[in-house]
């Protein structure tokens, strides 16, 4: 009896937790199909707000801008962050290692306003034209630390003797890294990339500091629209973003499954 009760309690708490997490999202998704012009009044099913969004040139431009920034900055951050993680995990105890790793992680806890402001000052000082590139650089700065943290924790857990075994079997140090270490930290690198991508897509504060006129990112655009009152179109955009992120996660998990299965036939390069 007690057991049954406990399990019911568990189910209830699970349902409550999930509802807490996902109810707002579900409501948002449902209301994105709302036919009414008023956000809070149900006016029957409709896809008109999706059509509206696809006709809203400014919003589309902002979405495209955000996507490009996220893609570029996530990729750059993954490369730089991975290199930093490798240097920290494998570089031995070079001078200033502690300082370097401390400095690498500082942006993680730095208030975004400060990061944004300091980058803005830098770009102004350099007299750089603010737009796609400045936002991309800013996002790379922010997200590379996250990539470095994720990759370094994986590298730290990796047995050093695996690389030595590869060298013992005829690999140069670089080859050993590529043939053994890289495949083993690939999931962490992929996770780091996705994290960076999402962070960049999502960022409002740093982007508003570092972007210029005419190159608003999607969050900036949405924010400025919402200040004038929530349009149901925003719900449609958000639903699309959720769909994209979900798809990304599914693809990533499928890819990691596939790479596991492929390991069977894999051979060193």
């Amino acid at each position: 009896m007690g057991r049954v009760r406990l399990s019911r309690f568990n189910i209830a708490s699970l349902a409550f937790g999930l509802a807490f997490l996902y109810l707002p999202i579900v409501i948002l998704v449902i209301y994105s199909f709302n036919g009414s012009r008023l956000v809070t009044v149900w006016g029957g099913w409709s896809t008109r707000w999706y059509a509206e969004f696809f006709n809203d040139q400014a919003m589309l431009a902002a979405a495209w801008m955000s996507f490009r920034v996220a893609l570029a900055s996530a990729t750059a951050a993954t490369v730089i962050g991975t290199l930093a993680a490798v240097a920290l995990a494998r570089g031995g105890h070079f001078r200033g290692r502690t300082l370097f790793s401390g400095m690498l992680y500082a942006p993680l806890v730095m208030p975004e306003v400060i990061t944004g402001l300091s980058l803005l000052l830098l770009f102004v000082a350099l007299n750089a034209e603010r737009g796609f590139w400045t936002v991309t650089i800013a996002h790379t700065t922010l997200t590379m630390c996250f990539v470095a943290v994720v990759v370094q924790s994986r590298l730290g857990a990796l047995d050093r003797s695996l690389e030595e075994a590869a060298m013992d079997l005829g690999c140069t140090p670089l080859r050993a890294f590529v043939a053994v270490t890289l495949p083993l930290i690939a999931p962490a690198i992929a996770a780091g990339w996705m994290l960076a991508f999402t962070l960049s897509l999502d960022d409002l504060v740093i982007a508003s500091f570092t972007t210029g006129p005419g190159s608003a990112t999607l969050p900036i655009r949405i924010y400025s629209e919402v200040r004038l009152g929530v349009k149901p179109e925003i719900n449609a955009i958000c639903t699309l973003i959720i769909a994209a992120v979900t798809l990304l996660i599914i693809v990533a998990s499928l890819a990691s499954k596939l790479s596991n299965a492929r390991a069977d036939s894999a051979a060193p390069m």
Binding site: L162, E164, D168, L169, T172, L184, D264, A267, P268
Partner: peptide, 30 residues
């Protein structure tokens, strides 16, 4: 990698992402 010497590691250091066959083939392919 240039020594005609091979080592068997205390913790074996088998490549976890490769099969038994690919582990053995590793040095041969190199």
């Amino acid at each position: 990698h240039r020594r005609p010497v091979n080592m068997m590691f205390q913790n074996y250091a088998l490549f976890p992402h490769l099969t038994v066959k690919a582990n053995i083939a590793f040095g041969l392919k190199r």
